[in-house]
């Protein structure tokens, strides 16, 4: 129940801080909303590509085969098999994970355990490989040492935590 208040509270906080900083709240909101809409438009082509690929994997039964193959491991971790696609795609691409989460919701219903776990995993992690290559590339790093293992271990810990928490 208390969590329903979060978003109204966030808006109140944002408006109050705008008033405090003497910013015209309405204009600032509209500028931000425009950026939000631009973001949606800019990810649409990626979503089209990824959802096509995910639909292909599902319709041809390849996803089922992969889930069946990995289901002993998933069960041991407490993960529903439907969440496999999200677990695998999340470190690679944000829009792919978004597409996969929406697939799970579609297939299992938004309040199913699989869909909730998919949401928690997706919300609690980042695109490890994209962020990693972006940041290391910007710094001209060629010897990344323990960066990738540490980031992936942290991701795995988050996934296992999500399975226990939901």
């Amino acid at each position: 129940m208390g969590q329903s208040l979060l978003i109204p509270a966030l808006l109140v906080l944002a408006v109050l801080s705008a008033l405090h900083a003497r910013v015209v709240a309405y204009d600032a909101f509209v500028r931000g909303a425009r950026e939000g809409l631009e973001t949606v438009v800019s990810v649409a082509p990626y979503l089209a590509a990824i959802l096509t690929a995910v639909a292909l994997l599902r319709e041809t039964g390849l996803m089922d085969a992969a889930q069946a193959l990995l289901s002993p491991l998933l069960t041991r971790l407490g993960l529903p098999r439907e969440s496999l696609s999200v677990v695998l795609l999340r470190p690679l691409s944000g829009s792919a994970a978004l597409a996969a989460v929406s697939e799970v919701m579609h297939a299992c219903g938004p309040d199913s355990r699989a869909a909730r776990i998919a949401c928690v995993i997706s919300g609690a992690s980042e695109t490890v490989f994209f962020t990693g290559s972006l940041y290391l590339g910007a710094a001209g790093v060629t010897r990344s040492r323990y960066a990738v293992p540490a980031a992936l271990a942290a991701y795995a810990a988050g996934v296992i935590a999500a399975a226990q928490l939901v």
Partner: peptide, 25 residues
């Protein structure tokens, strides 16, 4: 993909607006 984007557009606009408030303040 188009359906997903349309269903997300409203939320992105709202949270974008909230982010705009936070950024500019």
């Amino acid at each position: 993909a188009v359906e997903l984007c349309i269903s997300l557009a409203g939320t992105y606009a709202f949270f974008g607006g909230v982010m705009g408030l936070m950024r500019e303040s």
